[in-house]
Amino acid sequence: MSQAVHAEWTKLRTAPGAGWLILAFIPLTAALSATAAAAVTCSSPGCGLDPARVSLTGIDLGQAVVVVLAVLAMGGEYSTGMIRITLTAMPCRIKVLAAKAAVITGVVLAAGSIAVLLSVLAGQFILPGQGFTAAHGYAPLSLADGPVMRAAAGSVLYLALIALLSLGAAAAVRDSATTIGVVLSLLYVFPVIAQVVTDPVWREHLQQFAPMTAGLAIQATIGLQSLPISPWAGLGVLAAWAMAALMVGGLLLWLRDA
């Protein structure tokens, strides 16, 4: 297995796109988070804004880069025909998928941690100037605070689960562009639908079921009672999506000719 992981790591390290994607992911995420923090204002107590959610807004965008990175790790092999060499060298196909999953998870966890740390730091510096002060009922944003730590660590896990979901989908679909379209539709279409559905019960069901809205519940630090789904349960929904995608992808990889 360690050889398989090593091989996958070498592929990812030397693929031309991957390095750039990771390099783009960190500043994009941090920049959008900082922009969101600089753009919001809290003018009175009880303005209802969640400082952790605001300072982690960059994840909304950064996840798209993670999707592309994870999809290319699998889809790239199909577009170049490399998959045939890979499977000749490592005939146990599930092992190949597992090794890819391990490498991608590791890389996303590392890059995600940096991006999330930068985002939280930006929030720490910017938000007090935007009215998130003790006078308005906000403690300074700090990772020592339990819920904030959960939001930050949970966001890193969220990114890793998004990567696994994308990898599984890529193994099933095999074409990079189509997979990116499918996964990003799955992520982005549901929040927009949930925004316009007015039946409260159905809106809540949609938000509980959709991978992005459920998974991002992990970023909430205020108003936990009014969330459609509790933070860890939400991340669990995303994990179920990722598991399902990996299982379908693994099954198809195992059954089909490459």
């Binding site: 969101a36 753009a39 919001v40 969640d50 807004t57 909304d60 990003l184 927009v192």
Partner: peptide, 16 residues
């Protein structure tokens, strides 16, 4: 797609 989602379904304020 991302600008559309950020504009209509994110915590970004109206100005942005």
């Amino acid at each position: 797609v991302v600008p559309y989602v950020l504009a209509f379904a994110s915590p970004l304020p109206v100005g942005v």
